[in-house]
């Protein structure tokens, strides 16, 4: 009884001073997480488009392996992929820093998902647009860049926004390979101070502070691009 009272009076379950003290470190960690997310989604959007185009290739030697790679990436956990990039690739002579591994891992993992969105967007472009391109004898590159993708990509933007928010929430997995970021900071505060309530709570609140506005932004994108101009 005495012991419990002493602990409670010494430090409650929640210590405001401690929470404020660690806030700057956690914000710094979160900023790393945001950076990893922004870099990762950039890779994910570009690589996803490339994968979508390869998968649509008329050459089966290209489209089938691409489909297999996409299924493989979607079928394995992100954390395992990060471990593979950071711990396994060095055995093959490819050594990538922890933060870069996280960015690359996020990018590749989400590229597999965005590629499916792009594919749906491309297939939503009506056949008549392809036929008109033939009737005007447009070169394939022009057909893609001026006719098909400008109509496909706006319909994909809301999905890409959702992946951005999802990636932001996956990015803390970088802690598993010590890639910096907010979870790694919270972990190290806990191990140094033996207090977990404040770091993890502050982290959770900061996540909401970023991801709720981001989700609202995605809603806005959905309204803006969700319908088609015909």
């Amino acid at each position: 009884m005495r012991v419990v009272v002493a602990q409670a009076s010494q430090r409650g379950v929640w210590d405001w001073d401690f929470a404020l003290e660690i806030l700057p470190d956690i914000v710094r960690g979160l900023w790393q997480t945001v950076q990893a997310t922004l870099l990762g989604i950039t890779i994910g959007m570009i690589l996803g488009l490339v994968l979508a185009l390869l998968r649509r290739s008329g050459v089966r030697l290209i489209s089938w392996p691409t489909a297999a790679v996409i299924e493989f990436i979607r079928g394995t956990p992100l954390l395992v992929q990060l471990f593979f990039i950071f711990f396994v690739l060095p055995s093959f002579g490819i050594t990538i820093g922890a933060f870069a591994s996280l960015v690359i891992g996020l990018g590749i993992h989400y590229a597999a998902y965005t590629s499916e969105s792009y594919r749906a967007g491309i297939e939503n472009v009506v056949r008549g647009q392809w036929e008109a391109s033939v009737a005007l004898n447009l070169p394939p590159a022009t057909t893609w860049t001026r006719i098909i993708l400008p109509q496909a990509i706006p319909t994909v933007i809301p999905a890409l926004g959702n992946y951005l928010v999802a990636m932001f929430k996956d990015a803390p997995l970088g802690a598993g390979i010590s890639a910096g970021g907010v979870l790694l900071v919270a972990n190290s505060i806990r191990s140094q101070t033996l207090r977990g309530v404040e770091p993890y709570t502050v982290m959770g609140i900061l996540f909401l502070v970023v991801s709720v506005p981001a989700a609202l932004f995605v809603r806005y994108l959905e309204r803006k691009y969700g319908y088609e101009r015909t």
């Binding site: 447009l138 001026r146 006719i147």
Partner: peptide, 30 residues
Amino acid sequence: RTDVSMVFQHFNLFPHMTSIENTMLAPIKV
């Protein structure tokens, strides 16, 4: 195929381009 062109039942205009842009693209690119 440059010698041939076709007009369709359902127009198949490029919806993201203005009338004049619709007419300009192929002459520029082809």
